[in-house]
Write a protein that binds this DNA or RNA. Sequence first.
DNA 1: TTGATAATGATACGTTATTATCAATAACCT
DNA 2: AGGTTATTGATAATAACGTATCATTATCAA
Lengths: 134, 134
Amino acid sequence: MLSSSKHEGRRRTKQRDTLAKILEGSERPLSVAELLEAASERIDGLGVATVYRTVAAMLDAGEIESVDIPGEPTRYERSNKGHHHHFSCERCERVFDLAGCLENLRKMLPPKFQVRSHSVALYGLCAACARPAK
Amino acid sequence: MLSSSKHEGRRRTKQRDTLAKILEGSERPLSVAELLEAASERIDGLGVATVYRTVAAMLDAGEIESVDIPGEPTRYERSNKGHHHHFSCERCERVFDLAGCLENLRKMLPPKFQVRSHSVALYGLCAACARPAK
DNA sequence: TTGATAATGATACGTTATTATCAATAACCT
DNA sequence: AGGTTATTGATAATAACGTATCATTATCAA
């Protein structure tokens, strides 16, 4: 039995496909609320629980990662982007990816401290929101 | 009437003095829970509500600022420290101040985006927790 | 097609953090 | 000292986010 036809209990559904597609296609991390809204355009009556369940599944399948910004609900993005950080727009509430990272983080570390990870978040106005009122 | 003896409704209490003293003397940001615990050693029967109220008052008096780390309760620290960032210990749950800041943040910003502020948080083990089990 | 069962959606429940309520208490001006 | 009233503490109420439950529906191997 090579590739195995054994089902390990995971079924393919419209909601999972749609959510996966949205996450894969998005250039910015999305919250459960944003996912629900986006996916609801294609799936009628989609429930929040399903979004949470799908996200949880993709999360521990390693397909997506969570993006936590203080005060904001957790967002999710595909995990195959490189290391990067985020920009949170104070007006439209969206979160964007930033390219690159600071390299000199460790120099601000006190002796004996061990870093396991870090996060950098910028706050301000995104291009769309920064442009003058009219 | 020069310096005025007019009361503008703010009274000096043991709880406020104590909380202010703790915040001024702390080298790291403290959460409401941490404040409550620390202050309870000096004030018997101190209530949470009082801590929240006092923190809120100090906050909009500009005496303290809030420190938000994803997943953690908001912490507070005196606002007269210079610009700095934080280290969150994954073991003991305490948050520490880091000296200095990265200067090249703006170079990771997309065109037209306007930064108003930024935050950098490192995660790992503090000196105390990093030291081997025994 | 059908049957076993995974997945869904509605909703109740659980958390954690914070605010509102209100009677009892304590500050502070006179 | 005394009285006005800001402050306190206990607790109920909110709010935001996430999980558990469960009857119904849909997937998929046979």
